[in-house]
Amino acid sequence: MKQTLRPANLAKRILMSEYFVLYLTIVYLIVLTPIIPRLWHPMNIQNVLSNMWPLLVVAIGQTFVLILAGIDLSQTSVMAMSSVVGAVVMTSSADPVLFTKSPLWGTLLTDQGGLMASSPFALPVGIAVMLAVGLAIGFLNGFSVAIFRMPPFIVTLVSMMLFSAMAIFLTKSENIRHLPDSYLQISKTTFSVVSGSLVIAIVLAVIAHMVLTRTLFGKRLYAVGINTTASQISGVPTRKTIIAAYMVSGLCAAIAAILYSSRLEMGRPTLGSTLFIDIVGANIIGGISLAGGKGKVTWTIFGVFFFIILANSLNMLNLSFYIIDMVKGSVILVAALLDVARNRIRKAQM
């Protein structure tokens, strides 16, 4: 009797495990290895990793907001805005043919480049400005949600529309090139693996993990996500907590913008515009629910890892982009279904 029950139990335990997605990724990699040997080619590993770090960074930001039972659709526009603004500050030359129509032309942007063009301070100032853009947009979102009690979906939808339109308006749809070398170095890889992006992403993940599990802010974040009213009466500064969470989300999107634009070697007004489903998808695959009160950085890491491996392997199979999109969508669907199934099992166990 016991013998026959074991496999089912084991399956259940694996399914319920926090590391389920990680196991799944490993199995997937093992299965793929004979089919796509190129998977382990250093060039590909480098490629996978350079895709992974920025997505991880922005997805972690989204995790903070999801724990609050919120959502941040504006992360993609934060990425566009901060990449454009950062590039405007740092660029060392701009083509008059492309940019004369830009509203910044002649003041903040000239054929001599941006404000900090060729200055040794271009890098720190540029990065500071980019982060400030992320924090500012996050603040606007958080402020609207927390103080005016507007639904997060609409607030961030509108700021997504607003700031992506703004990013396009500022540059009249043109990409800004000629960024400082030091900036481009951030995403340059040595030994196929090590890069500034890697360091930034891992440090950020560790900090985010500590913040969520160990700090006052983290604990309050979960509390607000579960029951805002009860938290408020218990002395939790709910408004500040909400604003802070959206600011973290914006900040993470800005850091991701640094990693992306450094790799692309340009400030791009449409940066990240198709990324929303990847960000939310990775979180869902990791097991974070939209209902709030639940989520861990490790889950996000697993989700991003799986998502990137999946996308990469599909690319290597030379599938068309729409097939890849459909598969990605299906995988997120399965992940969402798994979450439902897990909750049922958990309820049945109680």
Partner: peptide
């Protein structure tokens, strides 16, 4: 509603 985080 106001006293507890039931799911916590």
């Amino acid at each position: 509603e106001e006293g507890l985080l039931m799911d916590y």
